[in-house]
Design a protein around this nucleic acid. Structure first.
Length: 268
DNA sequence: CCCGGAACCTGAAGGC
DNA sequence: TGCCTTCAGGTTCCGG
C-alpha cells in the first residue's frame, strides 16, 4: 500500500522523465476518482499545460502546472502510476498523454483520488507535520502525542497527527522503538517519544532507500517492484518469528487495521 | 474525546 | 472444482 516511502519513490522516478513535458490529452475512465472539478473542466484545463514540477506531501502527489492550479493525486490502497503499460493493464482510472510519455493511473480498487485546485490547502491543509522535514523534532512529536489518549498505533496512522505514515510503517516504527502498539499515546514517556521519533525517520528512510514495499500492487513507474518489504521486522510477517528474539509475531486488530508486533520485544 | 462500523471497490485466500 | 465468505487497509463520515 503506498505510504510515504512509496509515494516519495514514485515521485523521484517521475520527476526526471515527465517534468518539462506538456499535457497533450487526458482520458478519464473512472469519473468518480475525480473530486474536483468536472471531468470536462479537468480535461480542458489540463490540456496544453506544462508539468513544471512534482512534490509530495504526506501520501499526496502535487503536480505543479504552468497554469495557476495544482493537480493533486492520491493512490489510496491499490493505485499506481506507470509509464506506458504492459498491454493488458486493467483497472485504468486515467491516462495522461504527454508529449514524450504516456502516464497511466492504474487502480484496482478504484479508491484513488484526483483534484485540480487553485488552493492546494483545501486538500492537504489539515495534514500533520512531515516526518522527514527538519521541523519534525522530538518536541513536536511530543506535542502531538500528548494531546491524545488513543492507541499510539492509531495515532501514527492518523494523517492529521503525522503525515505519510500508514499501517506498515507504523508497525515497523513501533517495533524499532520497542513500544506496544496499544499503548495510549499520552502514556509514552520522554525517552519513548525520543526513540519513536528516531524510529519513524529510520524506517521511512530505509523504505525510501529500498524503493518502497511491494506488499500488494505497489510498483515503480517502470513496473519494477520495490524491496523495502524485505527489510520489514514485523509488518505482514504473519506466522513468522521475531528476528530479534525468536518469539512468534502476533497479529491483532487496532481500529480495524491488522497490526503486527512482537509481544516480547514490545511488552505492554 | 474516543470508538466502532460503514462506505468506497476488487481480487486473493480460506472453508466447506 | 466451485461457491461463498472473509479479508486486505487509506480516508471520510456517522452514530453512540
Amino acid at each position: 500500500m503506498p505510504e510515504l516511502p512509496e509515494v516519495e519513490t514514485i515521485k523521484n522516478a517521475l520527476v526526471p522523465v515527465v517534468v518539462g513535458q506538456s499535457i497533450v490529452d487526458v482520458e478519464l475512465f473512472w469519473q468518480k476518482a475525480l473530486s474536483k472539478p468536472s471531468p470536462d473542466e479537468f480535461r480542458r484545463e489540463l490540456i496544453g499545460q506544462t508539468l513544471e514540477g512534482i512534490r509530495r506531501r504526506g501520501k499526496y502527489f502535487l503536480f505543479d502546472l504552468s497554469g495557476d492550479k495544482t493537480m493533486i493525486l492520491h493512490l489510496k490502497m491499490t493505485g499506481a502510476l506507470l509509464f506506458e503499460t504492459n498491454s493488458d493493464q486493467k483497472h485504468i482510472t486515467a491516462i495522461f498523454r504527454l508529449n514524450g510519455t504516456d502516464l497511466y493511473f492504474i487502480d484496482q480498487r478504484k479508491f484513488g483520488s484526483l483534484w485540480l485546485v487553485k488552493d492546494e490547502q483545501e486538500v492537504i491543509g489539515k495534514l500533520g507535520p512531515e516526518p522527514l522535514d527538519n521541523n519534525f523534532t522530538p518536541g513536536l512529536l511530543s506535542q502531538v502525542v500528548n494531546r491524545h489518549s488513543i492507541p499510539i498505533k492509531a495515532l501514527l496512522c492518523d494523517q492529521h497527527a503525522v503525515a505519510g505514515i500508514g499501517n506498515m510503517y507504523a508497525d515497523e516504527a513501533l517495533f524499532a522503538a520497542r513500544i506496544h502498539p496499544l499503548k495510549r499515546a499520552k502514556d509514552l514517556n520522554i525517552s519513548e517519544i525520543n526513540g519513536l521519533h528516531d524510529s519513524i525517520i529510520e524506517v521511512l528512510e530505509r523504505g525510501i532507500r529500498h524503493n518502497g514495499a511491494s506488499i500488494s500492487t505497489y510498483r515503480l513507474p517502470d513496473g519494477a517492484e520495490g524491496m523495502a518489504h524485505t527489510q520489514f521486522q514485523v509488518a505482514h510477517r504473519r506466522g513468522e518469528v521475531c528476528l530479534t528474539c525468536g518469539s512468534p509475531i502476533t497479529r491483532i486488530s487496532i481500529r480495524g487495521r491488522g497490526t503486527y508486533f512482537c509481544p516480547h520485544c514490545q511488552p505492554e
